[in-house]
């Protein structure tokens, strides 16, 4: 009825505050919008969430660097050929060219130090790292969580 009142008696509709300065929420829908993630340190536990399924975004760690691979959803997203890598440290899988689950560590296991990889595997892994660096934004680093991974 506010429009009727405004139209008949002169008045205007004021929109909700989109800036958040007044403390009012702009809109139910936008209020629910998730804030951008702060780039920085990720633990295997916090990285796991970004597997394209629990969260729309897809983050993958390689050699301690975390990449935002959301643009490559067709590869790393649910039902994609490399979906196992999403939300994980994919270093061993990429180095050994294996997409099996046993190349990945669970979030509550110690982090993979890759010490048993051969020179050829490391070379292959470095090639993948370069590929990811050129293609996807690096958004932080993967570090072990005290009390969980170390």
């Amino acid at each position: 009825m506010s429009f009727v009142k405004n139209f008949l008696f002169g008045g205007v509709k004021t929109s909700e505050d989109p800036t958040g300065l007044t403390g009012e929420v702009a809109d139910n829908q936008t209020a629910k919008t998730e804030e951008p993630i702060v780039e920085g340190k990720f633990f295997p536990r916090t990285l796991y969430k970004y597997n394209g399924h629990d969260d729309e975004k897809i983050f993958i760690a390689i050699k301690g660097k975390v990449f935002d691979c959301s643009q490559g959803r067709q590869f790393y997203g649910p039902s994609g050929p490399y979906s196992n890598f999403a939300g994980h440290d994919a270093s061993r899988g990429l180095a050994t060219n294996s997409f099996e689950l046993d190349t990945l560590r669970h979030w509550d296991q110690p982090m993979d130090d890759l010490s048993d990889l051969t020179g050829q595997d490391m070379e292959s892994l470095n090639g993948w790292l370069e590929h990811f660096q050129n293609k996807y934004p690096c958004i932080g680093e993967l570090v072990p969580e005290p009390g969980v991974n170390i």
């Binding site: 205007v12 929109s15 505050d17 989109p18 800036t19 009012e24």
Partner: peptide, 10 residues
């Protein structure tokens, strides 16, 4: 039309 509190500051 934004609220006066916004218009006056921004």
């Amino acid at each position: 039309i934004l609220p006066d509190s916004v218009d006056s500051r921004l």
